[in-house]
């Protein structure tokens, strides 16, 4: 029954409703170092899955947060960012966002505004962190003030995927934020969507009185 909803792709996003699963998305312009950051964090453990039909790279990671095992899927853009916009399914059910710019290229910083607006259109509440990458190329930039992060009250990380500065901290913090978001807050949009689904199912019940039982079971929100 739940399967008859239009799936954006063969990728099963329902699993992100499960307690021990979180989805973290990466955003930012071309060549700001998103994949390099992923690879530095995961080191040997990385086995990206290319989903080229969806211009998407998935990195799977197992983390431990407060003694509990958490399965993390990192979503990386694989070129889709060139359209300065991501497909809606990219944002769907995401629990946290890592937004990256290149401290050597102003345009990647200016474009954060566009990325952030799109993120908030789909996910108004999820935690988001801003990442200033490539500090190894120009350490002076770590002594500068970047108002974007302050304006939206987002944490800012100065990192280098090359020498490793703050990369592990960034990802561990992002995982922690994703987990706590999932545990503590219900996104307003999630609630709206859940409501819409319920209405949809109620209508189905009316249409198909014989399936009442099955339909109401399906409509139970995931705990």
């Amino acid at each position: 029954m739940a399967r008859d909803k239009a799936q954006p792709c063969e990728l099963d996003q329902e699993k992100y409703d499960a307690d021990d699963n979180v989805k973290i998305i990466c955003l930012g312009d071309s060549a700001v170092g998103k994949s390099k950051l992923m690879e530095r964090f995961l080191m040997d453990g990385f086995q990206p899955q290319q989903l080229s039909t969806y211009a998407l790279t998935l990195y799977k990671h197992t983390a431990t947060v407060d003694g509990k095992t958490v399965l993390v899927d990192f979503w990386d853009t694989a070129g889709q960012e060139r359209f300065q916009s991501m497909h809606a399914s990219y944002y769907h059910k995401a629990h946290a966002c890592i937004m990256v710019f290149d401290i050597q290229r102003k345009v990647t910083y200016k474009n954060l505004g566009t990325w952030y607006a799109e993120l908030r259109a789909f996910r108004p509440e999820i935690p988001c962190v801003v990442v200033a990458n490539k500090i190894d190329a120009d350490m002076k930039m770590t002594q500068k003030r970047f108002s974007f992060a302050r304006k939206f009250s987002l944490p800012l990380y100065f990192v280098s995927a090359a020498d490793g500065t703050n990369v592990v901290k960034l990802f561990n913090d992002a995982i922690r934020l994703a987990v706590s978001y999932k545990q503590n807050s219900q996104d307003f949009m999630d609630e709206v969507l859940q409501e819409l689904e319920n209405i949809d199912l109620e209508q189905k019940e009316q249409d198909l009185p014989g399936l009442e039982q099955a339909a109401s079971t399906e409509s139970l929100p995931p705990s």
Partner: peptide
């Protein structure tokens, strides 16, 4: 090689603007 390198870069009002804002 160190896997987890943490360096603090405090962001405070006194800092000079990056010039991109």
């Amino acid at each position: 090689f160190v896997y987890d390198i943490e360096v603090e870069f405090p962001q405070d009002e006194q800092l000079q603007s990056c010039g991109w804002d």
